[in-house]
Amino acid sequence: MAIKNYDELTSMELDTLREIGSMGTGNAATALSQMLGREVRITLPEVRIMGYNEAIEWIGGPEEITAGVLVKMGGQINGIMLSVQQIDFVNLVLESMLKETIQDYSELAELENSALVEVGNIMISTFINALSGLAGVDVTLTVPAFTVDMQGAILAVPMAEYGGQSDYIMTIGGNFVCDNKQVPCRLLMSPDLRSLNALLRKLGVSDE
């Protein structure tokens, strides 16, 4: 049965999506680890289906400033992937790659921005590569877009994009652990409903 809303997913379907999240973030962590030259592990991957306002609380409140890298997926799977980079993550990247840290996002200049975009883009691409291999689907990705602003407005981008289909947003993703410290890097994949159905069918957990 094809689902009409995200909250209709069965536990078997959710497990499958969690598996995708696990593979995807695992690959992204390996890529991140190579870029930073440090060990990076992942914590338990999560699949979450949240109401809009619940999702904004979950990410840490609407007004908090964060950096966001956004890539749009096309081809056989349509959706949005976001890398939401809070300040601890930003500093981990900048310290490893440029030997500097910042106190505030206003200190970011072109060089720092491009480092963050690159890291976000590589993590997103490796995540999607894992997904595309696992499910045997072709996914195209747009050039990454970058912004530094209130995280509520960043998270509202996938919500608005699929808001006509659902009152919920689904995210697949996980957190990273580096040097035994939890680094809040949220890698979120939000597929549209039709693509989600197609994906579940390809993975053999949805009949028809």
Binding site: K72, T142, A145, T147, A153, A156, E161
Partner: peptide, 15 residues
């Protein structure tokens, strides 16, 4: 009514 991300030619961001 802002455009948070500049994404290529897609309809995203026109919202």
């Amino acid at each position: 009514g802002a455009k948070m991300f500049e994404v290529g030619s897609s309809s995203l961001g026109n919202i």
